[in-house]
Structure formats: C-alpha cells, structure tokens
C-alpha cells in the first residue's frame, strides 16, 4: 500500500533512497540500507605507476592504457551472470544522456532502448574490450565463485566496478588487502549530459505493507521501528554499509566516504535488472554480455533490448 507523511515522517530519509520506493508519485516503502556501485581500486598500484584517480573518461582511458602497458589487468570483471558487466553500460548511458533516458525508455515516453546513447555506450564498452581493459575470459567467470575478486586481491588487476558489498568481501576474504583499497565514482564524460554526481546503486532493504492487511497500524509501526535511527545505526555498524537515514555519520572511513558520495548525489539509479520487467531484464543482461563478448554489434544489442521492451511494455 502507498504510505503518506502522516504514516511515516519521510523527511528522515534521503530523497535519493525514497525515489527507489516511489512509483507514480506515491511512496510504497520505508528504506533501511543503501548500497552503491563504484570503482574500487588498488592504491598501491596507482602509487607505483604515479596514477591519479580519473575524473573524466579521457583520464580513465589513459589510466587503463598505463595499467595495461605495465602488465596489469586494468579492470577485473566476472561476468558469467551479466549484471557486473551491465553496470558499465548503465553508468555510461547515465553519463552520456543523463538519468532521464532510462526512465523515459522504461515508461515508453519518447525514447527507447535503441536510443543512440545506448549504442554509443555499447561502442565505448567494445572499445574497452578491444584495448584489453578487462581480464580475459570474463564472460565465463561467475562473480559469486570469487575469481574476479581474486584478481584484485592477488594484485593482477587494478580496478573493479562493483557494489559497496565488495568492502565486506575484502574484510572477510583478504583483510590485509584493505590497506591498499581505494574507491572513486564513475568518471564523467566530456560533452555528456549526465550529472557527474549521479550514482548507481540500490536501496535495500525497503519495507512495505500489504494492501489488504487487517493490522495496518501495527504493520506501519513495525516498519518504522525497522528503519528508525537506532536500527539504522546498528545496521550501518554491523554491515559496513550505508543507511538511508538522513544525517548519520560513520566511524568507518570507507562507509563515511560512501555517505559523502551519496550526500552529494542528485540521483541514485537502481540496476536495470531490478526495475525492468523480468523478461526484459534478462534480455538486457544477455545483450550487455554479448556486447562485451563481441558477439553482438552495439546496434544489434540495443535493438534486441528495445524489441523485448516493446513486446512486454507496449
């Protein structure tokens, strides 16, 4: 059911987090946690090669080339399931065209997934593949099996575009690696219309109430309890991730860095595969994977997703 200001004081929560629980102007849930998708990188390798974290895409390409020429895999990617590689396309489209394009394409309002910016994003991805920016065979490596993260821990690879849950993986799997861990947001693209502060990530968990419940007040009481300041602080401390509660600080330097990035962000975009209808989402992931595998051209991939969107949304 949709909630209103009399049920929950929404001012307590970050707007960007509430956006993810909003459908047609109505808010349907109370957010607790937020995760972001960012570039994690090896500060040691960057120092050794005297590299700075790239601010725009041209700098990013220079960093990639320098790393490659020094026998590092610039970007670690484990893309068997497709969502890790799809982040590149989703960020590139966001930087090229701004946040409106995806929403318009999804709502079928004046733009489609075959928009030229989707094609351009796919082209940029294939440029990266052609310059050997990724570790070989990435389309056969499942992220969950950990080989992608291993490339980072073993310092064979220098950067990885992944969710902030990577921080917890590092602390579990390779604690000593944390000393060399750094983070930077996806670079801006010169001439692109996207706001450089825009982030991709997701608000989860979000608590909602069943429309036909007999105990509406109790249920609302419960979800408020599950997302109040106290729970939010506990959640942040015990999961090393961010909360959607406005104005909280963290002693954890990484979490504080995430909070600062989120505070400055004007938009938080959910991963496509979580907001598209399932059948379109699968086509999107498959197409992004085939773009990276060079088995589809940028146009073919964009057309495939648009076709699936037309079948399922129009």
């Amino acid at each position: 059911m949709s909630l209103d200001q009399t049920d929950v004081d929404f001012d307590q929560y970050l707007d960007v987090a509430l956006d993810n629980a909003t459908f047609e102007e109505e808010i349907y849930g109370v957010p607790l946690g937020v995760s972001l998708t960012l570039f994690f990188y090896n500060t040691g390798i960057f120092e050794e090669l005297e590299l700075d974290t790239p601010k725009d895409y041209d700098e990013f390409i220079t960093v990639v080339e320098t790393l490659r020429d020094n026998d590092y895999y610039p970007l670690a990617l484990a893309n068997q399931t497709g969502w890790t590689g799809a982040y590149y396309q989703e960020y590139l489209v966001n930087r090229l065209a701004g946040e409106g394009l995806y929403d318009d394409a999804l709502q079928r309002e004046g733009a489609g997934f075959d928009d030229e910016n989707y094609v351009r994003a796919n082209e940029k991805i294939q440029d990266l593949v052609d310059m050997d920016a990724f570790n070989p065979g990435f389309n056969g490596i499942p992220y969950d099996a950990g080989q992608g993260r291993q490339l980072m821990y073993s310092e064979q690879a220098a950067m990885m575009l992944i969710t902030t849950s990577f921080l917890n993986n590092v602390r579990d799997e390779a604690p000593q690696y944390e000393d060399d861990l750094g983070v930077f947001p996806f670079p801006t693209i010169e001439g692109g219309e996207g706001d450089g502060s825009n982030l991709l990530g997701s608000g989860a968990p979000v608590w909602s109430v069943y429309e036909d419940t007999e105990h509406e007040e109790l249920a609302i009481e419960l979800i408020k309890e599950l997302s109040n300041e106290e729970t939010s602080i506990d959640y942040m401390d015990s999961t090393a991730s961010m909360s959607a509660y406005e104005g909280l600080q963290s002693d954890d330097a990484f979490v504080q860095q995430f909070i600062d990035l989120l505070q400055d962000a004007n938009y938080l975009g959910m991963p496509y595969d979580q907001t598209m209808p399932p059948s379109v989402a699968q086509v999107h992931l498959d197409a992004a994977q085939e773009v990276l595998g060079n088995t589809l051209t940028p146009e073919e991939a964009a057309d495939l997703v648009e076709e699936a969107a037309q079948n399922s949304l129009d």
Partner: peptide
C-alpha cells in the same frame, strides 16, 4: 570453473 579459470 576453477580448473578452467582463464588466468589462474
């Protein structure tokens, strides 16, 4: 999957 890992 580990045996067939492309790098290691």
């Amino acid at each position: 999957i580990y045996m067939f890992d492309p790098v290691n």
